[in-house]
Write a protein that binds this DNA or RNA. Structure first.
Length: 419
DNA sequence: AAAAATGATTCGGT
DNA sequence: ACCGAATCATTTTT
């Protein structure tokens, strides 16, 4: 623009280019003499053509303008006009509500640990804790570390991008502010206006920032769905865990709702989480109820197993009563456990205490042997679901005093007396 | 490869 | 907050 030919050197062309301002100045300055008027017009002309001049020439003219005797007066008038317009503009668009979407993104990034403080130590500690949680957790923690690696990668990209963004924003703001400050010597620019300009710049940049946050959130969500959605990486519980859970289930068949404490203990024994125990029992209950016949064998096995272990503990190997009454409606004759409280207690203590550590295997071995025996003893009918009422719901939990009450079916296995 | 089993999630109800 | 039910997505079995 500097090398443009300076066509606007003469009066007439300049006035034609800016008729409004020229008329305005003409009107105000009309009372003065012709010379004054000519002066103002000249000054205006110089101001208006200042950008069309080459740099050196512009600087020279700028300096000349600055030293002109009329400059302060004209400048103050311009400042006054400017002040009014700026104020009206500011009044028109004042409030700046915090973007809810941006806040949402911020919150999510903070929750995911992407933004906020770098928590390298924290995640390392978490990894160590997960690794120390148990043998089963090894696989899990490997996945988690993978997840964490990807997450930190995302976080790093996010931070570098954010840094770049801030740097660019600051740079640009500084440039603009310098420019405006420089121009404020020849152009009426109030500090407020500079401030407003900075605000505009920041808004523009923050829309870019939001895009960055948006895409980061997306990446995190994808990563999350791929690595943390347990349904995608489901692992069956190991055999021992399943057996422990099944034993609890079938030995509390009349009320298979483990308390919070019981859940915690089961979780510890199975080295799974409490939530997983809850899931398991939820699934088990619904599936058992849905198709009792399918679980009959399993029920018999675990019941027999419990009974056998109980009898073996009490040194009383009588199975003679088992095939006695396969007929009686509903509650088939099962182990006559309910009439011997001490024996039941021994069963409970066995389940509760010794199923941990190395003894499990030997005990399980014995159990599986005897279980095979009792299974071959055709005890198919011996474990009918007396815990389920006609509606399909579970029987109400028996009151503790009803242990010896005759209203209960003989085979009902109570969950009370244990923890 | 199809079917069954299984752990997890979602939704509505209480 | 918990449960039942339906459902999903994967694993295991057939």
């Amino acid at each position: 623009m500097d090398e443009q030919p300076r066509l606007m050197h003469s009066h007439g062309v300049g006035m034609a280019g800016h008729p409004g301002l020229a008329q305005h100045m003409d009107g105000t300055g009309g009372t003065d003499g012709e010379g004054r008027k000519q002066d103002i017009g000249d000054i205006l002309q110089q101001i208006m053509t200042i950008t069309d001049q080459s740099l050196d020439e512009a600087q020279a003219r700028k300096h000349a303008l600055n030293c002109h005797r009329m400059k302060p007066a004209l400048f103050s008038v311009l400042c006054e006009i400017k002040e009014k317009t700026v104020l009206s503009i500011r009044g028109a668009q004042e409030e700046e509500p915090p973007d809810p979407q941006l806040m949402r993104l911020d919150n999510m990034l903070l929750a995911e640990g992407v933004s906020g403080p770098e928590k390298g130590g924290g995640s390392a500690a978490a990894a160590a804790a997960a690794a120390a949680a148990g043998g089963v957790g090894a696989d899990n923690s490997a996945e988690h570390s993978d997840y964490r690696a990807k997450l930190s990668q995302i976080r790093q990209i996010y931070h570098t991008e954010l840094e770049k963004y801030e740097q660019a924003c600051n740079e640009f703001t500084t440039h603009v502010m310098n420019l405006l400050r420089e121009q404020s010597r020849t152009r009426p620019i109030s500090p407020k206006e500079i401030e407003r300009m900075v605000g505009i710049i920041h808004r523009k940049f923050s829309s870019i920032q939001m895009q960055l946050k948006q895409s980061t959130c997306e990446a995190v969500m994808i990563l999350r769905s791929r690595f943390l959605d347990a349904r995608r990486k489901r692992r069956n519980f190991n055999k021992q865990a399943t057996e422990i859970l099944n034993e609890y289930f079938y030995s509390h068949l009349s009320n298979p709702y483990p308390s919070e404490e019981a859940k915690e203990e089961l979780a510890k024994k199975c080295s799974i989480t409490v939530a997983q125990v809850s899931n398991w029992f939820g699934n088990k209950r619904i599936r058992y109820k849905k198709n009792i016949g399918k679980f009959q064998e399993e029920a018999n096995m675990y019941a027999a197993r419990t009974a056998v272990s109980a009898t073996s503990v009490s040194a009383h190997g009588s199975q003679a009563n088992s095939p006695s009454t396969p007929n009686s409606a509903g509650s088939a004759g099962s182990f006559n456990m309910s009439n011997s409280g001490d024996l039941f207690m021994s069963v409970q203590s066995l389940n509760g205490d010794s199923y941990q550590g190395a003894q499990v295997d030997t005990l399980r071995h014995v159990i599986s042997q005897t279980g095979g025996y009792s299974d071959s003893l055709a005890v198919n009918q011996m474990y009918s679901p007396q815990g389920i009422n006609a509606n399909g719901g579970w029987q109400d939990a028996p009151t503790p005093s009803s242990v010896t009450s005759p209203t209960e079916g003989p085979g009902s296995v109570h969950s009370d007396t244990s923890n």
